[in-house]
């Protein structure tokens, strides 16, 4: 027993050192592209850390959104910054301050959290009440129960924020290009490697995404993880020229993007008629939760896909 324990401890210590090291590299390196790549690596390490902590749901979300999607968005941003970047724009004093202030704040928060975790004795956590009320939520995965039932308003606000981000992204569209297809025009060779890949992978990705959505009710998975996979599949199919990129004025893509927050708000408001805001009745908890989650998955997929493609642009 003892040797296995120490090997795992060694693994954890190495992982922690790697996480801190990569985080420091990412925030101190000068080249923006290198910083982004290091941030993606940081996300992968953090996902492994979540697995070690037994939080597989969070690990899936971190890998899909923290490392994957944020990485893609940042790489896109770096690529666009390259065009406008001027090399001689270094104001050293402010740059120094811009690094020291967030670093000290981060250190302060980290040491505060470490102090709390190490010194405070947790006599009573919310674990027991969460598990005790699980039958009323209609799902078996406590994380899904927290996200879609106990703390449903958090998730409602989260998806609304995502929707707001999409509108902000649409607002950056040039007037002449409004109504064009999202993002750059894609150039793909017919029956080329990317086109073949774009036809082969999406069916597998769809099956994995549906599995993760469905599994989210009882085991690990959920709307955000599945939505991100669907978004990735969607983007791949667009890049490979299998389907066309949507345009922001299209009615169906708009209803996809709004379906989740709208249905969620609808459920929340009907709760007012019964008892109070955002009540999910025990009788229909399982089907209602699944329906909300399905709409959310669709909206998250559409929104993330549109965010990655960005506003319509003329190809250079």
């Amino acid at each position: 027993m003892a040797p296995a324990f120490s090997a795992l401890t060694l693994f954890d210590v190495v992982l922690c050192v790697l996480i801190i090291g990569v985080a420091l590299c990412s925030s101190s390196v000068r080249d923006l592209f290198a910083a982004t790549v290091l941030l993606i690596i940081y996300g992968v390490f953090v996902a492994i850390a979540w697995v070690r902590l037994g939080a597989v749901d969070v690990a899936l979300a971190e890998a899909a959104i923290g490392a994957g999607l944020t990485g893609v968005l940042l790489i896109g941003a770096v690529a666009r910054l390259k065009i406008t970047e001027s090399p001689a724009a270094a104001v050293s004093r402010w740059q120094f301050a811009a690094k020291v202030i967030p670093a000290s704040l981060g250190l302060l928060i980290a040491s505060g959290l470490a102090y709390l975790v190490l010194t405070v004795e947790w006599r009573e956590t919310l674990q027991a009440p969460v598990l005790a009320n699980l039958p009323d939520t209609g799902v078996l995965n406590p994380v899904t129960a927290v996200l879609l039932n106990y703390r449903a308003y958090d998730t409602l606000l989260e998806t609304s924020v995502l929707f707001a981000a999409l509108i902000a992204s649409w607002c950056t569209t040039h007037d002449d290009l409004w109504g064009e297809r999202a993002g750059l025009r894609q150039h793909t060779r017919r029956a080329g490697i990317l086109a073949t890949f774009g036809r082969f992978l999406p069916p597998i990705g769809l099956i994995v995404g549906i599995h993760i959505f469905w599994a989210g009710a009882d085991k690990w998975g959920g709307a955000f993880q599945a939505g991100t996979i669907f978004a990735a599949v969607w983007i791949l199919a667009i890049m490979a020229g299998v389907i066309d990129a949507p345009n922001a004025t299209g009615r169906s893509i708009r209803s996809f993007a709004v379906a989740g927050p709208m249905f969620f708000t609808f459920v929340a408001l009907t709760g007012v008629l019964a008892q109070s805001f955002l009540i999910i009745p025990v009788m229909v908890a399982k089907p209602l939760t699944l329906a909300i989650e399905a709409c959310l998955t669709l909206s998250i997929a559409a929104t993330l896909m549109l965010l990655v493609l960005g506003a319509p642009r003329r190809s250079a």
Binding site: I193, L194, F197, F200, L201, I204
Partner: peptide, 13 residues
């Protein structure tokens, strides 16, 4: 298999 497929495609690109 999926990783190999992705790696092969990406390296070609």
């Amino acid at each position: 298999l999926l990783t190999m497929l992705a790696a092969a495609t990406v390296s070609q690109l």
